[in-house]
């Protein structure tokens, strides 16, 4: 692993990573990006199972996607929650995800762009 030896190198590394993909996942990616919120409350409600299910099913169904684990977003009432970013689209957060729901999300939203019930609307702004 490379050691960062100067602030310039840090910048270069960031640009390199950003070139590979966009950190907040908006649009520039050509792959579907799925974040499985796996903090304590997510895990307690079964986020691990959902992570495994989604990874496996996407592979089975030949969908090119990146699935990552992140911390929780604070939607503890609706865990497990996942966030799906389709290429060129704003991220959408789905709550109360079980295997059935995950299947529906893959079939309806990821494959066809149709929304699925259980969306948690974005009600916050963040800083860049």
């Amino acid at each position: 692993m490379k050691t960062i030896k100067s602030p310039e190198e840090l910048k270069r590394l960031r640009n390199e990573i950003l070139g590979r993909r966009h950190p907040k996942g908006e649009g520039t990616n050509d792959k579907v990006l799925i974040r499985v919120h796996s903090g304590t409350s997510g895990l307690a409600s079964g986020a691990n199972e959902i992570f495994d299910f989604i990874t496996l099913e996407l592979e089975k169904r030949n969908i090119d996607a990146v699935v990552i684990r992140t911390g929780d977003m604070g939607y503890c009432f609706a865990e497990p929650t996942i966030e799906v970013t389709l290429p060129g689209k704003q991220p959408v957060v789905f709550g109360y995800v079980d295997k059935l729901k995950a299947d529906e999300i893959i079939e309806k939203y990821i494959k066809g762009g149709g929304l699925v019930e259980g969306i948690l609307p974005v009600n916050y702004q963040t800083i860049e």
Binding site: G25, H37, G39, T70, N123
Partner: peptide, 14 residues
């Protein structure tokens, strides 16, 4: 959007 995330800016994102 009443919420403004500074502390939680990356939580659930990275």
């Amino acid at each position: 959007k009443k919420q403004l995330r500074i502390v939680l800016r990356n939580c659930g994102i990275i």
